[in-house]
Design a protein around this nucleic acid. Structure first.
Length: 523
DNA sequence: AATTATCGCAACCGCAGGAAA
DNA sequence: TTTTCCTGCGGTTGCGATAAT
C-alpha cells in the first residue's frame, strides 16, 4: 500500500525516528561516533547519495558519510541505494510473471532473497522478501498451505517414489538443529524435492521423524513441538468459512498420491457427510504427512519467517520464525505415531478453520503444474482481498459438484477464504508451548491413542472429549498430535466410504456442538 | 464518524563471510 | 595466523495507510 517509497520526500516528518538526533547507528560498522540519522530518507539525502554514487561508484559505503556529509551509516546508504535509488530498479507491483518467478525461485532456493533478486532484474531482495512474507502471512492466516496442493502432491509423488526405491534415509530426528531450536523451521524442501528429486528426498524423512522423537523429546523442554501444530486459533467467522470440506475434489488428485487415495476417495464419496468437516481437519494431518507438505508448506511459512534457506534437503533448520506454521506438522509424516486424524482436528475444528491442507489437497483437482498452481494461488490471493465466502463452497460444493472450475479454483477459494485473524502467527511459540505443555504429561496416552486411532476407535473418544470442555479438547488435541501415526493412518481413520467414521459414528451433533456452529446447518 | 485491526513497505539490526592489514 | 573492517544477507520492527467494525 502506501508506501514510504517516496516518502523520503515527505516523510521526513513522519513518524519514524528520523530525527537526526537519533542515535547512532547501530552496531554496525559504523565507525565513528558521529550521530547517524535513522529512519526514512529525505529527498535531500537521496540526492546526496545519488550524487555521491554517481561520482564515486557503488561500494565503500562507509566512506559516503565521510565524504558526502550524509549522516547515515554505510549500511543505511547501501540499502537505500540498493533498494530505492538504483537507476535500474523496477518499481511497482510484481507482475504475474514476476510472481511466478518468485515462487519458483523460492521453491528452489528457499529464503535466499538476494539470490532471488539476482534472477529478477530490477527487483530487490527486500521487495521479494516482503512480497513473500506477505503472501505467507496470508496463507498462514488462512490456514492454507503455502504451496498449492498440487504442488505438494507432486512432491509427494516424488518422495514416494524415492521411498519405494529405498532412497529415503532415515530421518534424523535428533538433529541438533531441530532439537535445539524452539522454532520449527520448515525447510524448503518441498519444491526442492520436486526439482531435485530423490537426492533430496531424504529431507522429508528427516522432517517426518522429527515429530516422533523430537517432538516428544522436546515436548516439555521446548516449544518446538508446538510448532508442528497448527496454530489454530480461529475465529468463529473463520470457522464458518473454512468449513468447506472438500470442495472440488477430483479423483485426479488422488492419482498422484497413493497414500492419499483413500483419503481422497473418501472425501469425494463422503463429501456429503456432515461429518466431513471433521475429517476435513484431519486432513490436515494427512496433509502434513506428505513430505512435501511439510516441506513446501513449511518452506514458505517458515520461510516466511522461517527461514529455510537451503534448498536442499540437507539443510533442515527448524526455526520457528514468527510465522510458524502448523502446517508443518511434519511429524505426522514420518512418525509412526500420529494418526490422528486430527487431533487438532478437534481443536481445529473447534477453533480453527478447516484445515488448509486437507482442503487444499483435496480441492486441488486436476492440477498439475506446480508453478501454475502456485501462481494461481498467488493470484488468487491477490484478488482475494475480498474474501469470498467459503460458505459458498462449504455448502454448495460437494464432491459431485465440483466442477467446472478451473483446476485450482477450489483451492483458491479456500485459500483466500480462510483468512484468519487469529492465525498461528499470532501465537507465539511460547504460548503454544505453554498451552501444550500438558501434553507431555499425558504422553503416556500416546501409545494408546495411536492404536486407537488406527483402530478407528479414537473417534469416540474424541467425540466424548470434545463434547466436554475446552480443556479436554486441548488435551485431546495434544494427545492426538503426539500420537499421530501417519497419514495413512489418518486416511484409514476416515475410512473409505463408510469407514471408520461411520463406524465410529461420531455424532454429527456432537461435532456440531463442538464446533458450535454451522456444521449442521451447512449441511 | 470513530475506533480497531490488518496490510504492506521501508528501514533497522545482528550475524556471517571475505578481504585487507 | 590473527585481528579488524567492510559488505551483504536474512529476519524483524515500526509506521502510515487502508479496511473493517
Amino acid at each position: 500500500m502506501s508506501s514510504m517509497t517516496n516518502e523520503s520526500e515527505d516523510n521526513m516528518s513522519k513518524g519514524h525516528q528520523d530525527s537526526p538526533s537519533t542515535e547512532e547507528t547501530s552496531g554496525g560498522n559504523m565507525g565513528g561516533g558521529a550521530h547517524l540519522k535513522k529512519g526514512p530518507w529525505t529527498s535531500a539525502e537521496d540526492a546526496i547519495l545519488v550524487d555521491y554514487v554517481n561520482k564515486h561508484g557503488e561500494g565503500n559505503w562507509n566512506a559516503v558519510q565521510k565524504h558526502s556529509g550524509l549522516s547515515r551509516c554505510g549500511k543505511s546508504c547501501r540499502l537505500r541505494w540498493a533498494n530505492h535509488l538504483r537507476p535500474d530498479l523496477k518499481k511497482g507491483p510484481f507482475s504475474p510473471e514476476e510472481e511466478r518467478r518468485i515462487i519458483e525461485l523460492h521453491a528452489k532456493m528457499g529464503n535466499k532473497w538476494a539470490r532471488m533478486a539476482a534472477e529478477l532484474p530490477g527487483r530487490t531482495d527486500n521487495e521479494i522478501k516482503n512480497y513473500w512474507n506477505t503472501r505467507i502471512k496470508r496463507l498462514q492466516r488462512a490456514g492454507l498451505p503455502i504451496y498449492p496442493p498440487e504442488v505438494r502432491m507432486q512432491a509427494q509423488n516424488v518422495s514416494q517414489e524415492s521411498q519405494i526405491i529405498g532412497t529415503l534415509p532415515t530421518g534424523d530426528t535428533s538433529s541438533p538443529d531441530i532439537l535445539k531450536t524452539d522454532n520449527f523451521e520448515i525447510p524448503d524442501v518441498g519444491f526442492k524435492n520436486l526439482e531435485l528429486t530423490r537426492g533430496f528426498l531424504s529431507y522429508s524423512p528427516t522432517l517426518l521423524d522429527m515429530p516422533a522423537s523430537s517432538m516428544v523429546k522436546q515436548g516439555v523442554h521446548s516449544s518446538y513441538s508446538y510448532n508442528f501444530m497448527f496454530p489454530t486459533i480461529h475465529s468463529p467467522k473463520r470457522l464458518r468459512e473454512s468449513e468447506t470440506l472438500f470442495p472440488g475434489l477430483d479423483d485426479s488428485v488422488s492419482s498422484g498420491l497413493p497414500v492419499f487415495h483413500q483419503y481422497v476417495d473418501y472425501a469425494c464419496e463422503n463429501m456429503s457427510d456432515p461429518f466431513l468437516s471433521f475429517p476435513y481437519d484431519s486432513d490436515i494431518n494427512a496433509y502434513d504427512q506428505l513430505p512435501l507438505d511439510v516441506i513446501s508448506g513449511s518452506h514458505a511459512l517458515l520461510n516466511g519467517n522461517s527461514s529455510s534457506s537451503e534448498p536442499i534437503a540437507g539443510a533442515l533448520k527448524l526455526e520457528l520464525p514468527s510465522l510458524q506454521y502448523s502446517e508443518t506438522r511434519q511429524d505426522s509424516w514420518g512418525t509412526p505415531a500420529s494418526p490422528l486424524p486430527s487431533l487438532e482436528s478437534v481443536d481445529t475444528l473447534i477453533q480453527s478453520p478447516p484445515t488448509e491442507q486437507t482442503q487444499s489437497e483435496c480441492l486441488s483437482p486436476r492440477s498439475n503444474g506446480l508453478l501454475e498452481a502456485v501462481l494461481y494461488e498467488s493470484e488468487t490471493l491477490k484478488s482475494s482481498k475480498k474474501y469470498l465466502c467459503p460458505k459458498t463452497w462449504d455448502t454448495s460444493v460437494m464432491p459431485g459438484d465440483v466442477v467446472d472450475s478451473p483446476p485450482l479454483n477450489p483451492c483458491k477459494t479456500e485459500w483466500e477464504a480462510k483468512g484468519d485473524p487469529n492465525s498461528p502467527l499470532a501465537r507465539s511459540a511460547s504460548s503454544v508451548f505453554s498451552e501444550r505443555t500438558p501434553i507431555s504429561a499425558s504422553s503416556s496416552d500416546e501409545p494408546h491413542l495411536v492404536e486407537t486411532m488406527l483402530g478407528c476407535e479414537v473417534k469416540p473418544d474424541m467425540v466424548n472429549r470434545v463434547s466436554t470442555q475446552d480443556v479436554q479438547k486441548k488435551k485431546i488435541r495434544y494427545q492426538m498430535e503426539f500420537s499421530r501415526p501417519d497419514a495413512l493412518l489418518d486416511l484409514s481413520w476416515f475410512g473409505h466410504g463408510n469407514g471408520c467414521v461411520n463406524d465410529q459414528s461420531i455424532p454429527t451433533d456432537a461435532i456440531a456442538a463442538l464446533l458450535g456452529e454451522d456444521i449442521s446447518s451447512d449441511y
